[in-house]
Computed example of a mutant assay.
Amino acid sequence: MSQVTRCDSNDSNLLNFGTFPRPHCILQVSCAILRKHQMSNSRKKIELFYDVVSPYTWLAFEVLCRYRKVWNVELKLRPAYLGGVMLGSGNSSPASVLNKRRYMTKDLNRLAAYMNVPLRHPSDVFEVMFKKGSLTAMHFITAVAEKEKDSDRLVENVSRELWKRIWSTDQDICEPVSLSEAGLNAGLSSIEVEELLSLAQSQPIKDKLMQTTQEALDYKAFGFPLIVCHGDGKPQVYFGSDRFELIAHCIGEKWLGPQPDKPTSHL
């Protein structure tokens, strides 16, 4: 006579030969499978189009990465080229207006303190943003993204290291040695870094960056950060690092402040 199995949450019991689960066990297992299926289907997706030359985007990047474990969302990091978006949309830098530039300096300092991001202005912002730019760095990040198809852990780490180099420690992000240091600090091996530096100069990677930049323009981007929420129905597009309450409302989640593990009392 066959042994009756005990009931647990592991539906593999249903496949054990020579066992006969009780009817209520079958019902419980079926419900568990159904709940798992419903959760995967209800999970929302958020795309972040970004360029490490943008300080406001660094703020949005850090906050969204923190919420990966808080919201039922899949965060998709989309490295793109801000210069291409500005050109393609006909936009110009707010830094070209003196009063805006003065305001942005104070605004970034306040936001960095509020969001707990170690942002500090480089000694020559104009040189960093407009003379050197970020094309080489974004090719490198795109190469990392293409190499790491099943996860974006290294993409997140490399992006953060490059942001820190510009907007925290006032270092270069254009020279290969600088990219190598960022890659090593992000957890890549020296062999991987060399492979990625070579890959970053290839035409497929350049085409991929252009493609992602065009996708941002297709969403009517005019700057970064560009955040696209995919929930029920049409994708919702948000610009800036101060739209998290609206994003939470869009995906049916709760906004707990920029540090969800340390909620503030003034929300």
Score class of each variant (00 low, 15 high):
residue 3 Q to W: 11
residue 5 T to V: 13
residue 6 R to K: 13
residue 16 N to R: 12
residue 18 G to Y: 06
residue 19 T to P: 03
residue 26 I to H: 13
residue 27 L to D: 05
residue 30 S to D: 02
residue 30 S to N: 02
residue 31 C to M: 07
residue 33 I to M: 10
residue 33 I to H: 03
residue 35 R to V: 06
residue 35 R to P: 00
residue 36 K to F: 06
residue 38 Q to G: 03
residue 38 Q to Y: 13
residue 40 S to K: 15
residue 42 S to R: 14
residue 43 R to W: 07
residue 44 K to W: 05
residue 45 K to A: 09
residue 46 I to P: 00
residue 49 F to V: 00
residue 50 Y to D: 04
residue 50 Y to P: 03
residue 51 D to S: 09
residue 53 V to D: 10
residue 54 S to D: 11
residue 54 S to I: 06
residue 55 P to S: 15
residue 55 P to K: 14
residue 55 P to C: 14
residue 56 Y to T: 15
residue 60 A to M: 08
residue 61 F to G: 07
residue 65 C to S: 09
residue 67 Y to R: 03
residue 68 R to D: 01
residue 75 L to V: 03
residue 76 K to P: 00
residue 82 L to I: 10
residue 83 G to M: 05
residue 89 S to K: 04
residue 90 G to E: 05
residue 91 N to P: 01
residue 93 S to H: 05
residue 96 S to R: 15
residue 98 L to T: 07
residue 100 K to N: 14
residue 104 M to S: 13
residue 105 T to V: 14
residue 105 T to C: 05
residue 105 T to F: 15
residue 107 D to F: 08
residue 109 N to D: 15
residue 110 R to L: 14
residue 110 R to K: 15
residue 112 A to Y: 10
residue 112 A to I: 06
residue 114 Y to F: 12
residue 114 Y to C: 07
residue 114 Y to A: 14
residue 117 V to A: 03
residue 122 P to N: 05
residue 124 D to I: 08
residue 126 F to C: 04
residue 127 E to Y: 15
residue 129 M to F: 11
residue 131 K to R: 15
residue 134 S to W: 04
residue 138 M to T: 02
residue 140 F to P: 00
residue 143 A to H: 00
residue 143 A to G: 01
residue 146 E to S: 13
residue 146 E to N: 11
residue 146 E to G: 05
residue 149 K to T: 13
residue 155 V to H: 03
residue 155 V to M: 01
residue 157 N to E: 09
residue 159 S to C: 02
residue 163 W to T: 03
residue 164 K to L: 15
residue 168 S to R: 14
residue 168 S to G: 13
residue 169 T to F: 13
residue 169 T to R: 15
residue 171 Q to G: 14
residue 171 Q to N: 14
residue 172 D to P: 09
residue 172 D to G: 10
residue 172 D to F: 10
residue 174 C to K: 07
residue 174 C to D: 14
residue 175 E to G: 11
residue 178 S to V: 08
residue 178 S to F: 08
residue 180 S to L: 07
residue 182 A to C: 08
residue 186 A to T: 04
residue 187 G to E: 07
residue 189 S to R: 04
residue 190 S to Y: 09
residue 192 E to K: 11
residue 193 V to P: 02
residue 198 S to D: 13
residue 199 L to V: 08
residue 212 T to N: 06
residue 213 T to R: 00
residue 213 T to C: 03
residue 214 Q to T: 11
residue 215 E to K: 03
residue 216 A to P: 06
residue 225 P to I: 05
residue 226 L to K: 07
residue 226 L to H: 05
residue 231 G to N: 07
residue 233 G to C: 01
residue 233 G to E: 01
residue 236 Q to G: 00
residue 243 R to K: 09
residue 246 L to H: 11
residue 250 C to F: 03
residue 252 G to D: 00
residue 255 W to N: 03
residue 257 G to V: 00
residue 258 P to R: 10
residue 262 K to G: 00
residue 263 P to S: 10
residue 264 T to C: 12
residue 266 H to V: 08
